[in-house]
Design a binder for these strands. Structure first.
Lengths: 341, 341
DNA sequence: TTGTAAGCGTTATCAA
DNA sequence: TTGATAACGCTTACAA
């Protein structure tokens, strides 16, 4: 169907290698033959066959983004959208295609087949799919990859990019303390993932920075028991053990907000609030929530750029990047009359 | 590095073609050589090189999903998440990889290079990137593709999948009318896109179905002028021209809700509400909003399955699929005391 | 500056 | 049931 390099060669009366040379644009070619070849390519509507080039070159010009299927919600919302968008742009800018695949885990799975069958030139992996077997394989094959999110294990020997959750937790609590709140509690569904740990560490260090005693600081872990959590917070407010909360995500904030409304506890009147993850709810809550905004676009961009650099330069030094968060101040953390009274 | 088909052949003492035959599993092979070859493949940790296979076969085992970069918000939220997830699963299930690319439009662009350079076996295109030049090219090259969303043009000659917006509009208005609301207005930022037109058509037909005169039915188009819209609705309620609204999306609902709260117009007390697009806000509004839920997972799944069928069977008959919506009833469309009084 | 020829790893055709 | 051999379209020594 489509014209090949040979057709061009024949038409112009040169050899295929000469045509190949002008396609690749590095070798020395006389100005005349170059233009004649280029004209022929136009005339025959020639486009290099990428399958053949990939085969000949031993490359694919494609990177893969692995997503964590288990984690449909977390990933789909916060990360996925903007990170994927950023990764695609970075890839395209550098002449790479982006392939996306679910990590089906277990048996050989999608990732290992990408590697063994040489379907892509590099990988962006979610921290959740980091396991010894996989990193061993990648190392053995010298396969370039970067991790999206600080991994649970091997974090000292892998390249990864993450949001600076530590700094986010610290910023949030400092803001609340500066507003005049004194008894801030941290609220989260869990405290075992790396990002929860980092946020809690930052939260605690915020108090230290403000020279506030940690004895009475509360960290509430609730699992899926929102009802129980709400009761805890309510009691905390009534007993004056809590005057503000830092929530680990939007959904949690929503539940607390709703619980406080039912209990007639005004926010920010009697309870100040800051939440992690600006998007998508914080702005639209009642009251609008002060939020620790995480720049997932940048996250993806840095991961993709880093990977491509590794592919091209075979960079050796390991790099970890933490992306700063931004505190977006809204009504929920303001200081109101009722509070001081 | 990796073992090739020849290494296996040598090790077992057969020809490369025989090895190839067991890899592909269709040809007739004696049980004995098959097992010996398989053992050798295991021993040498052999994995077929997909670049070479792609090249030899003239296929890529990859489909591309094109996304509309212009439309970051619309696409990123509603569609993207769940559709992409569905498309990836469908692709993987059928042995395809999924490549994602932005439509950079203009000059040659990413789409045409995918086609000309034979980087993928088929395309899923957003309706926004449908233009004559592109469809001509695809037709000329006999390149399989399906469209995500009913296209503005050529809708009669292309394969596409969309949400049944018409039916969604109808369902919503019928629900409100059945609840006892009488003067429902449709609210949208615009009325020119295909999906807005379809929704409006369904909205109007809902009245017809309930034998309600259309003379006093209002369709409010607001652009980005939310303030003006709110005033319109407020006046409509005060003058008893409007007792319910059907909103085209979540953000619009949010603004109206906020406006009504400021104006002390209770929802659903004095104004009933239904919104399109359940996700992500509707559930978390005050009050929770009755929503026309669109199944974008199914949308993606059907698009991908359809494309793969086209690639494999070269199906000829054109198919358009409309995916039914589901009305999720929540507080905002209930009938309350204040209303009947 | 250009041509010749080998090679990338697999599949397909033809013969045996 | 198996083996030789050509072919897929391009790149790249090496030679001229």
């Amino acid at each position: 169907m489509g014209a090949t390099i040979k057709d061009i060669a024949k038409m112009v009366g040169v050899s295929a290698s000469t045509v190949s040379r002008v396609i690749n644009g590095n070798a020395a070619i006389s100005e005349e033959t170059r233009t004649r070849i280029q004209e022929a390519m136009k005339e025959l509507n020639y486009h290099p066959n990428s399958r053949a080039r990939n085969f000949a070159n031993g490359i694919t010009n494609t990177i893969a983004l692995v997503i964590d299927a288990e984690d449909e919600n977390t990933f789909a919302n916060t990360f996925f959208n903007r990170s994927v968008y950023a990764i695609e742009r970075a890839a395209q800018k550098n002449g790479y295609n982006l392939l996306i695949t679910n990590d089906m885990d277990e048996k050989g799975s999608s990732i290992t087949s990408l590697v063994y069958e040489k379907k892509v030139d590099g990988l962006i992996l979610p921290s959740s799919s980091i396991r010894k077997k996989l990193t061993d394989l990648l190392e053995k094959e010298q396969f370039p990859f970067v991790v999206l999110g600080e991994p649970e294990v091997f974090s000292e020997k892998l390249d990864w990019v993450d949001i600076n959750n530590y700094e986010g937790g610290k910023k949030a609590v400092c803001h609340l303390l500066e507003q005049g709140y004194k008894r801030v509690a941290f609220v989260s569904e869990e405290d075992r993932t790396v990002f929860a740990k980092r946020r809690i560490a930052g939260f605690l260090d915020g108090f230290r920075e403000k020279n506030i005693d940690l004895d009475s600081v509360e960290v509430l872990i609730c699992g899926q028991d929102y009802r129980g959590l709400i009761n805890n917070v309510k009691r905390g407010v009534e007993e004056k053990r809590i005057d503000a909360v830092l929530c680990s995500n939007n959904i949690l904030s929503y539940h607390i907000l709703k619980g406080m409304r039912e209990a007639k506890i005004p926010v920010p009147g009697k309870l100040g609030m800051v939440t992690f993850d600006n998007y998508p709810l914080a702005e639209y809550m009642e009251p609008p929530l002060t939020a620790v905004d995480v720049d997932t676009y940048r996250l993806g961009e840095i991961a993709a750029d880093g990977l491509i650099r590794k592919i091209n330069n075979r960079e050796v030094e390991r790099r970890n990047v933490l992306i700063d968060t931004e505190l977006i101040k809204r009504a929920s953390s303001e200081r109101r009359e009722e509070q001081s009274g």
